[in-house]
Design a protein around this nucleic acid. Structure first.
Lengths: 353, 353
DNA sequence: GGTTAAATTGGAAACGTTTCCATTTTGCGG
DNA sequence: CCGCAAAATGGAAACGTTTCCAATTTAACC
């Protein structure tokens, strides 16, 4: 009769497991068993329950189920900039893999704000999410992750160095930015360049740190003047990068080659070069970090460091699934993905200076 | 003692409202009231409960709460391509607004696959999500949305024409692609162009349909030969677009201007032009639909149709929140966002043919 | 101080599942 | 047909909240 009341009020009252039980003429327990395990269920009951469920269009309330089973079938994903193609592709790939496994993904944009980050983690915790993928805005805000992990939910880190606990590192998917930067730098040095600028966001996070390390390593191993290795730390804003790049290219002994991150900074550098009448690649060789549309389509096409964003997302999802299944013993707990140098038209030997 | 057992097994047993009640020396009901409404609670109880909750680090189980309150605090968001900057920005903006309102957002990538779409909707339904934002892969797969809405959860449509029920249209956020395309076309015609190609994905969905309509309208109102209006339907793949664009530009009476969508198709067109030795804008004027990094940074910079993706996401979230609050009476149920033409360097009068 | 209304409180029901446990049914060998 | 183990079943507890209801305390007024 409460059903009737609800119907009269215009509210569609869902069909519950109890309705199915009544229609099938069995107990709720039997319905649950029939629909889930299929174990310890007679053929007759199985048939009747299936028929009743079909007839009533029954869909179990996963919300209610999770209260009992202590598992929600949902995982969180925290990144600093969802609109950034670099993150978006990772998120998409991870979502695809997780959905395959029947999990839903909740996204959160942190905008590199530690407070937001903490708030999101708290929300995830309160919702009892089964696990999460995170790319912290800084490598040091690990208190929050530690707390979350203490709640028992597995956490997989995306391309960040979060200090581990008791020497056991966090499961993580890392990109080998160091080797990538080294390869690119070595390539430019091999072409004859001696003054090369690296334009990348600060060393506050792993990717930048690793790139700088690889960049310097290439200079060191080539045994040439390390003063030619110009590291320019940038925020990820295009205009800033352009101003900065202008200043850089106006110097007396300006770099003959530039390695620039992503879309924004690369664009800033290219615009600066154009504004100064520098032609790429004749006057300035350019390598992009990250193979974006811009790099591929630009005239001349820009040589780029490329790694698979899909692999990052998929590997992260895989790692998380592994943990969720509790088979953490087997399999790797970290993945290091390779970076390739895609040769195009934007690099040539420097003209005599 | 079940607590002790759990602790011995290494499982952190959460502190529940019952623990708080015990520590504060009140009933669970009072704790709930104190923590939520604050109504009908004496100062003493409020103080004691707050203290106990603080001391125990109590965090309510929202999963359990939602079972009782029939509201989950989560909304779904379904788009066809999360990695596409056009969608990613919308999703980001919507997420920001929803988070402000205390809601979590679950994303799903449908890849324009109706089966996936239905599966996701079913999952959303089973999880009792409060509402959803959807950009269906086709305008006709509305059965699924109808079903969902029947469950009582508000649905806001993103830039699609989904047939409404009983003449009451779905709440939707629409972009005025028609007017945008008309403006762009009129501009080119004004420059003297008479053969213009529109490169856009098929008319299966609203944006393409509207663009084509606006494109043709501009020709009609200019009273010039409508045979010059070349509509080229494309899939959103770069290589295909390039091949197609090559074919197009090799024709005898090739178009003197191109209006091309987004990143991929635009890139394909630019590459095709470059491969054929056509210079932009001297030999070919180009307008981009959607103001991407590529358009802004390309040399020459590409004139583009621009609308605010942030506004789309925010407006959609706003519309949804309105419905969730039940104040659907007031306020608009649809929003139509304007499209601007950003003039850059890629359009000039055609050279004599 | 007594009466009545209002505010507060504790206890229990309810939300929709799963899972435990005791009971009944089935299957099978003698 | 009996006895017994195994399988199937129904009923109820449990998950962690919120909310209803009845009971109690406080406030207010004369």
């Amino acid at each position: 009769m409460s059903n009737m009341r609800a119907r009269m009020a215009g509210i569609v009252s869902r069909t519950t497991i109890r309705d199915v039980a009544r229609t099938a003429g069995v107990s709720v327990g039997s319905v649950s068993r029939a629909l889930n395990g299929g174990k310890n269920v007679s053929a007759r009951v199985a048939r009747d329950v299936a028929a009743a469920a079909e007839k009533l269009g029954y869909q179990p309330d996963l919300q209610a189920r999770s209260l009992r089973t202590r598992t929600t079938g949902m995982v969180g994903c925290l990144v600093s900039d969802l609109a950034n193609p670099l993150y978006a592709s990772i998120v998409q790939a991870a979502e695809a893999r997780l959905r395959e496994a029947g999990l839903l993904m909740i996204v959160g944009n942190t905008a590199n704000d530690p407070a937001r980050e903490r708030a999101m983690v708290a929300a995830f915790r309160s919702r009892r999410l089964d696990g999460m993928l995170v790319a912290p805005g800084s490598d040091e805000n690990d208190r929050a992750w530690r707390e979350l992990a203490a709640g028992g939910a597995p956490v997989v880190i995306l391309d960040r160095d979060v200090p581990g606990e008791d020497d056991v590192p966090w499961p993580a998917v890392l990109v080998d930015h160091r080797e990538g930067a080294r390869t690119a730098t070595r390539y430019l040095i091999g072409l004859g360049h001696r003054r090369i600028a690296l334009l990348t966001p600060g060393a506050r996070m792993r990717p930048g740190r690793e790139r700088i390390a690889g960049f310097k390593a290439a200079f060191a191993e080539a045994d040439i003047d390390p003063a030619g290795a110009l590291v320019c730390l940038q925020e990820s804003s295009m205009d800033f990068a352009q101003g900065d790049a202008l200043e850089l290219l106006r110097r007396d002994r300006r770099p003959t080659a530039i390695i620039a991150l992503g879309t924004r900074i690369l664009a800033g550098a290219l615009r600066a070069a154009r504004d100064l009448g520098l032609s790429v690649p004749r006057d300035l060789s350019v390598i992009a970090i990250g193979d974006t549309d811009l790099a591929a389509v630009h005239s001349p096409a820009i040589t780029a460091l490329r790694w698979s964003l899909e692999d990052v997302g998929r590997a992260a999802a895989e790692l998380l699934l592994q943990r969720l299944r509790g088979t953490s013993g087997e399999g790797q707990s970290r993945a290091l993905l390779p970076v390739d140098l895609v040769l195009r038209e934007s690099c040539v030997p420097p003209t005599a200076t």
